[in-house]
Nucleic acid binder design. Structure first.
Lengths: 294, 294
DNA sequence: CGTTATAATAAGTATAACTTATCGATATGA
DNA sequence: TCATATCGATAAGTTATACTTATTATAACG
């Protein structure tokens, strides 16, 4: 068996197409076909079901491919280790962030990071939490900014800061002149929310889980910026994370007292990552950035 | 990078000798040397420190080799999956058992197993718990009979049976005529124990942890059979697992009531093992064997 | 100071993987 | 229905790579 064979196999599983898989592996289609045939021959099992029009993965194949991904990731981590050893602060860092933190926190940290690590190529990816966790565990990204308190088994997290929620209302709202509101009041308010899949939506619903009011609106904003526009336009109120606050945007931000709800923003990476030490350093740097800003 | 290279590398790490490593890999020494050189060149780091007389592994090398072991194990598991798929009940099964269970439980189960799975080559290994867990996680054995209740992360366990402890005394012991003793009494007895490293010793000490008496003897038996001889010879008393009881061996076995201490014997294997399904079946079979005997 | 043990190097050979060109089978569409 | 396109498998020749044995270089040892 051979790492290359496994790479080819995984490529076919990803594309379900020999030609595309071959292209992705930068080899000709026959080369890839042959190696996979040999692998099947060597293992003496059928991994793929081919026809002229389609490729399927057998049940056993699924298991084999899953393990093959692990093996390839392990190999990649060996290469990473070597690279990190040579030049700890060089090379690519693929960093994910979920949509309701990315546009607010990244501008805060990216300049400092690029300044401190000028040889680092910071490749940023904005995606929903679920997607990021998946990409993390599959080794498609190196780290991600997440709002989950607990990370699953293979991942580990380093808390960066606590992002409080704040009550956002139009300037002409009945409470617009108040300095603060309390939970009792909030639970009785209908709130505009982001669409399904955003962790911010879940966190707001979680906080207000006793209130059926919160889901009253049938329109759901697709991004935090859209939501902000809607609030400013007087459509309704919502909970916004403090980091998304902006001065003079036509919105009145009202503190929630006592015990404002919050989300914890953490940097998360694979325990097995070769960038381990560097990522810890990076997380500390992010924390400093936030404190300087706050 | 290549699985073969990693295999060579691990072999050198294991032998700390290129020649022996080469022999273990069934290749000539130059072939192995060259591949490792190329690997180091490819990764552009030094993994091994060579001199004419000795080979050392660098710090980074340690990390790389550790990960390489994982990668190789993953690859081996892919092969296992294929083999198991072709013939679930064939091939080698490397089974470990700790010394105070092996000679008593294995004779009970081995005939049944070989009868039910005639094409299975059962390779048995007797070693101390710590050693077995190490061999398990490193993929040197497929499964082990252990008395640990909880298995660490990568392992999973299936309970086979509960093995109670019983108070073993010479025939002429003061309590030899009693039908049972209680914990209060036991805690005041000096007990003969096995030497360090035996889990049975730890379990007995654990049960009697309030009693300083139990460590009074400065002589420690090296095996359960030796211990049995010592009890029979009238040297002292001990706690024996019920499964080690034997009729007419010059020892009086006295029940501990109420709430006899016990150890739980489980079959343990790697979660990632390809023999997963088969091992569950095997564990069930062992359980049946025990119940039939009991 | 030769002998031994070690890993590295050299030269030649064998193996394996790659390339391009082609085939065979199936679906698509005028 | 027949030409055409698509896709994976096969064939033939080439290249790259890993292997072999023989040899060298270096240090330790008696």
């Amino acid at each position: 068996m051979n790492l290359r064979d496994l790479k080819y196999l995984v490529a076919v599983a990803d594309h379900l197409h020999f030609g595309k898989a071959a292209k992705a592996c930068h080899v000709s289609q026959p080369a890839l076909s042959m190696q996979i045939q040999k692998l099947e021959q060597y293992l003496d099992v059928q991994i793929l079901e081919r026809s002229n029009k389609s490729v399927f993965v057998t049940d056993l194949g699924q298991k084999i491919i899953a393990r093959a991904r692990d093996v390839l990731q392990g190999a990649a981590e060996i290469e990473d280790m070597a690279a990190m050893n040579k030049a700890p602060y060089m090379g690519n860092l693929r960093l994910g962030a979920f949509p309701t933190i990315a546009p607010y926190f990244l501008p805060l940290i990216v300049p400092t990071i690029s300044q401190k690590f000028p040889n680092l190529r910071l490749l940023l990816l904005e995606a929903k939490t679920e997607d990021l966790v998946d990409k993390l565990t599959r080794g498609k990204i190196d780290a991600a900014l997440l709002a989950t308190t607990e990370a699953p088994g293979v991942l580990q997290s380093y808390p960066i800061f606590r992002d409080e929620f704040i009550f956002a209302v139009p300037k002409d709202h009945e409470k617009a002149s108040r300095k603060s509101v309390d939970k009792e009041y909030l639970l009785q308010q209908p709130l505009l929310l982001l669409e399904e899949g955003h962790c911010l939506r879940d966190q707001a619903l979680d906080y207000c889980r006793l209130s059926p009011m919160s889901t009253e609106y049938d329109f759901q904003a697709t991004s935090l910026e859209t939501l902000r526009q809607m609030i400013a336009a007087g459509v309704g109120a919502t909970l916004l994370p403090k980091i998304a606050m902006r001065p003079d945007d036509g919105i009145k931000y009202i503190k929630i007292k006592p015990a404002a709800p919050y989300r914890t923003i953490s940097l998360v990476w694979r325990k097995s990552s070769a960038k381990q030490a560097f990522l810890t350093e990076l997380a500390e740097l992010m924390k400093l950035c936030y404190m300087r800003h706050d």
